[in-house]
Nucleic acid binder design. Structure first.
Lengths: 264, 264
DNA sequence: CAGATATATCTTGTATACTAGATAAATCTG
DNA sequence: CAGATTTATCTAGTATACAAGATATATCTG
């Protein structure tokens, strides 16, 4: 603007080599990640929660253009979110046709229950060996909280406490990755659970089972802890009537229903 | 072109309602999926293989623009491929900075071995109950093939046969989803394996262990099959010296190395 | 010559425009 | 009126252009 450009720009810049860029940030370097939440992350989390909560019924069309308007973003980040959901099998993308909230694959339900039990068993075994006193106290606090919300009849808070308890055991075992895997499977089972009515008195029973598991952990009795966790998780069964009769269109029957749904 | 447009275009089209699009394709409808392989799929598979095979060393920069030229595609599908790899933790994306082939997270190695053993145990138990005669025969054929390539010293073929054997057991158990989970973890362990030298005589031992597992399956002895599978998988251990001394920059030490690497 | 500063240029993240295939409504044909 | 056919319009897949932040190099200052 002001000032004569004649002199400032006369000195020619030498051709500059492109920056090296041979090395990634050092492993230990805390890359300042302040809070650049990508838009795709926001949409992903939002849609994911709604799908898992069954607020969006299986089969509901997902129209990219509608969502871009709703969130005020462009298609590119929205597409990234949808593609991530597709990898989790929470949405089905039909090329050149449309995208839909996925039906619940019965095979994933069946295998998910089996896999979860297997993983939680090794987790509780490791937790028994490694849990610190403070971790055990935290778990006791969680159980107490769960008892309180169960008495109050707050089902949502109850399920949060349930997840916290199992998550806490995974933390005590130092198995964050295995816990992530369990969560990944729980997604589909959770969608199924939202369809079923809570069984009366179930909440109080669960609290007791949790307490039993924790007692064994605190006593350092690994085999007993595993056995009690197994008992606890064996209570999770699939009520075939739910999807066969009540919401037949909510599921994909990609496995024979005659196959045993609970294995040992 | 030919013909008088005067009449043909005079009849106005009524405003047309957009197509309904309320229902997804019927669950059973075989949507003709001919062969519309998305470009992102090709790039994803190609990069994934190269990373797992350690052809691209951890820390290698991944420059989107270079790859678009190499594959002759635009950034959008390429980005999709890179983002999928990032979710698998095979690449690290540093916002506004760069993308790099990921180091191997030691925690994933450690937990992966534990989780795999847990999942393969329930799988082999189910396989013992459900395996058909033909499936057992197929497994025997795989073991025979593995013995042949082991004698020939073909290590690549040996590992393929190894994977086929475990995959076959998962198929016999009707646990395709659990097998996918195992594969997902194996990715990182496989990268580690590529760094280690094969132990002499190991191939022949593996064949024997596989045969022992299959014998128990064929006899319908579930507990024995599980025990033998456990023995087999227990041989997989982490040689800490490999990453601590030989390639320290290839790993991320996101877990204490003092923690037991093999649990029971 | 050493250290601080400035800046060119790279990177990923985002927005937008275009292409090709699929679908259902509207039209045509008997 | 029933069925085949056309056609408008939607969809996902792709290409390209722009924006914002990060970094190594060149330059400036003492």
């Amino acid at each position: 603007m002001t000032g004569s450009p004649s002199t400032a720009w006369t000195s020619p810049h030498k051709t500059r080599k492109p920056r090296a860029r041979n090395a990634p940030p050092a492993p230990g370097s805390m890359v300042r990640t302040q809070k650049p939440v990508k838009n795709s992350e926001i949409v992903y989390g939002d849609l994911r929660r709604a799908i898992i909560a069954m607020e969006m019924a299986p089969g509901t069309p997902i129209v990219e253009r509608d969502l871009t308007e709703r969130y005020g973003i462009s298609r590119t980040p929205l597409r990234e979110a949808v593609l991530r959901l597709a990898e989790e099998r929470l949405v089905d993308v039909v090329p050149k046709s449309g995208t839909y909230v996925a039906r619940i694959p019965v095979s994933v339900l069946r295998e998910g229950i089996v896999a979860r039990r297997a993983l939680e068993e090794v987790t509780v075994r490791a937790a028994t060996r490694r849990a610190s006193e403070s971790q055990i106290m935290s778990l006791r606090a969680i159980i107490q909280r769960q008892k309180e919300v169960a008495d109050a009849g707050d089902e949502e808070a109850f399920h949060r406490a349930d997840e916290d308890f199992h998550s806490g055991i995974a933390a005590a075992a130092s198995f964050p990755g295995i816990w992530d895997m369990i969560l990944q499977m729980r997604v589909h089972v959770e969608r199924y659970r939202r369809l079923t009515l809570p069984q009366p008195g179930r909440m109080r029973l669960v609290v007791g089972e949790h307490a039993a598991v924790l007692d064994s952990i605190a006593e350092g009795k690994a085999d007993a802890a595993v056995a009690r966790m197994k008992e606890h998780l064996d209570k999770l069964t699939l009520d075939i009537a739910v999807f066969r009769d009540l919401w037949p269109d909510y599921f994909i029957y990609d496995v024979s229903l005659d196959a045993p749904l609970n294995l040992d």
